[in-house]
Amino acid sequence: MNIALKCDKITMKFGGLTAVNEFSAEIREHMIFGLIGPNGAGKTTAFNVITGNLKPTSGDVNFFGKSIVGLKPYKIVSMGMARTFQNIRLFSNLTVLENILTGFHHKLQYNIVDTVLRTPRYYKHEKEMRNTARELLKSVGLLDKADLKASGLPYGERREVEIARALATGPKLLLLDEPAAGMNPQETLNLMYFIQEVKESFNLTVFLIEHDMKFVMNLCETIAVLDHGVKIAEGNPEEIQKNPDVIRAYLGDIDA
């Protein structure tokens, strides 16, 4: 099996605060890897380092064998890594379809001159992109929402659109930051199936952060636990559930 993502002792300091402390992990291709930990443990910060939004204080990130530390985030996207955000961040004034279309931006095949002159190339690729976007929406069951404004959708669907938008960038690795946050049990269950399906049909590797224990335990093959920026455990769901360190870190923090 290939290693999709390898974090090698990444450390991220904000002034005096060490948000992530020598975090290492290996994520094999086609697996669903979970990262859990109490609030403020440094999970999102770890994501921001991996996606290039933050430059780590030290350590290395390897993406399919290439070091990506120091690359611009949009460059990393074009290498095949996509993410969603903890608090859903759609382009609220664009339609669902337009939101998806932005995901094709990095492989845009016409230029500004084609745009202004409306050349055949412009029409050809614009049409292609729209068709692909519709297909994508269809495959995730959101086609009927294509022309609605993104801000008008219910919460659960907004999350699905956000994931679909990330898929549009053509990722090999998908990072999801607390995808089930703020969802009711039914929505959470739907989302679980959704992620599973998407993973299979798009042949993805998934790296997700989640607070909801049941969600992670059911979905992930391997789980790492972060506490105060330090990885305190890694293993399969059963191992994690039994680990005394994890139980201590989570005491009073388990709501599931």
Binding site: N53, A82, L90, H106
Partner: peptide
């Protein structure tokens, strides 16, 4: 305009 961070995450320069 709507969300610069999300735009970056979509691979937009």
């Amino acid at each position: 305009r709507d969300d610069e961070d999300a735009a970056i995450a979509m691979g937009i320069n």
